[in-house]
Design a protein around this nucleic acid. Structure first.
Lengths: 250, 250
DNA sequence: GCATACATGATTGTTGAACAATTAAAACTC
DNA sequence: GAGTTTTAATTGTTCAACAATCATGTATGC
């Protein structure tokens, strides 16, 4: 039966829940609602993620299982399942027999992240297809950042900046690289969080993003790539310097 | 105390176990033995990995927890911990409420892997530093493959080929990209396993690897990169064609 | 014969208690 | 203050149990 085959195909190739049924001569497929597929472990992971983002759990902070499990209202086994997702994202570091702690961004990690970004982002821009849909997303991110700048809303500027670079990764048309970007921004956010001057971090780059975008829109991919390379080298330098000041004075 | 600070530094930045102690005026650091840090969950993961590699667990095969846990002599919770590592490697797919199965390499995954490889490997070669240590590793892999060819030992040829490309990733000097390579080769091995003619898969590439290497050793990085690109496009085509035959006839 | 609904069985996700092993912290000694 | 021993805390694992979910089998209607 087509419905059964479709269910099997979809369940094998994705992790999502689907409802498939015949409606006349059409197979109607509905994606299961997000709420219906949530597990307690994933909810716990989300809550931990939020606590990290809010600074309630600080980089390097030990998170004892029993205490945290009780605080979240789940069992310790379930918390370990949650740690699994967070560990994959790089937000949590688990050391055998010593427990879990919030990841500390370290200098090697930051350097590595920027090295990867230069390789991937610059090459993605060099090889970008004209009128690739991601270019429009870059444009929207630039406009969002400019609007947020008018309000001195640095949190929104930071988010728009991350979206801009996500779109650059998406130029490469690779799900795997997109997942990588998601992970490395999780880790970068930890580093950003250590620096208490977001304007210093993000302000120098609005005009640069716009210049890169305009070169790209004009089809000058090599020039856009070179400008992006300069951008990333500068961003790395600023983050490393800020990180060093934050961890030295702290 | 320097010993305590060193322990803290090491434990925060790596997952390894260290013993640090003062010996005279020198701090002596010993890395904990591998055997001492093994956990039951990691042992279970290794055994599952081996079973997959030996074909005892086939792509797409459901692996019910209770049965497998009993077969491995661990509890179900421990098995779920093992699944965690394997899921991160892409060897296992876990679907909520449906259980775990051995990952099925699918066409989209293979295409994505080769897209990523072209972006990363070709750029790594283009920007390779002269006399980078990874170039020597490429040379050793080529020699190992040629020797294995004399014995028609296709398993060793496949391994040497994977080592050759690992070394190319290492040209980029990024731990993150090296980890990515480890994961994508795990997934590629699943696809290779579906094709029952290893000679067909690997034989065409020995001479190409050697040509790429010689261009690189001669400092012609752009030519090496172009040759690598051709290689990867051909390898993708051969794998996709073989995969399609295997999954159509199967 | 096919489609649908319901019942049954199998499996997963979670809970909680327990215990061995490991690590961290405190106490003690020199 | 440094080193050693003891104690406490925590992690990794096991087990049993149960609710929830899914898969499979059976019965019924068209």
């Amino acid at each position: 039966m087509i419905v059964e085959q479709l269910k099997l195909f979809l369940s094998t190739n994705t992790g999502a829940c689907y409802t498939a049924l015949m409606v006349g001569s059409t197979v109607k497929v509905e994606v299961g609602s997000e709420a219906g597929t949530r597990s307690r472990a994933l909810d716990a992971a989300s809550e931990i993620r939020s606590r990290i983002a809010r600074g309630e759990l600080a980089p390097g902070e030990r998170v004892p299982e029993a205490k945290l499990a009780e605080s979240l209202g789940v069992s310790r086994n379930t918390l370990r399942e949650a740690f699994r997702a967070l560990s994959e994202e790089g937000l949590i570091t688990q050391i055998p027999n010593r427990g879990a702690c919030v990841a500390i961004p370290n200098i090697n990690t930051i350097i590595d992240i920027y090295r990867v970004r230069r390789l991937v982002e610059c090459q993605a821009v060099t090889e970008a297809m004209p009128r690739h849909p991601a270019i429009a997303r870059m444009r929207r991110a630039v406009e969002a950042a400019l609007e947020a700048q008018d309000h001195d809303d640095w949190s929104r500027i930071a988010t728009a900046n991350i979206e801009f670079h996500r779109a650059i990764f998406e130029l490469a048309d690779s799900a795997r690289l997109n997942r990588m970007y998601a992970q490395l921004t999780s880790e970068l956010r930890l580093a950003f969080g250590l620096i208490d001057d977001p304007a210093y971090l993000h302000a120098p780059f609005l005009e640069r993003n716009e210049a890169i975008l305009e070169l790209l829109e004009a089809g000058s991919t090599e020039k856009a790539s070179a400008a992006l390379r300069d951008y990333l080298l500068l961003a790395e330098r600023i983050l490393l310097a800020g990180y060093e000041r934050a961890t030295t004075e702290g």
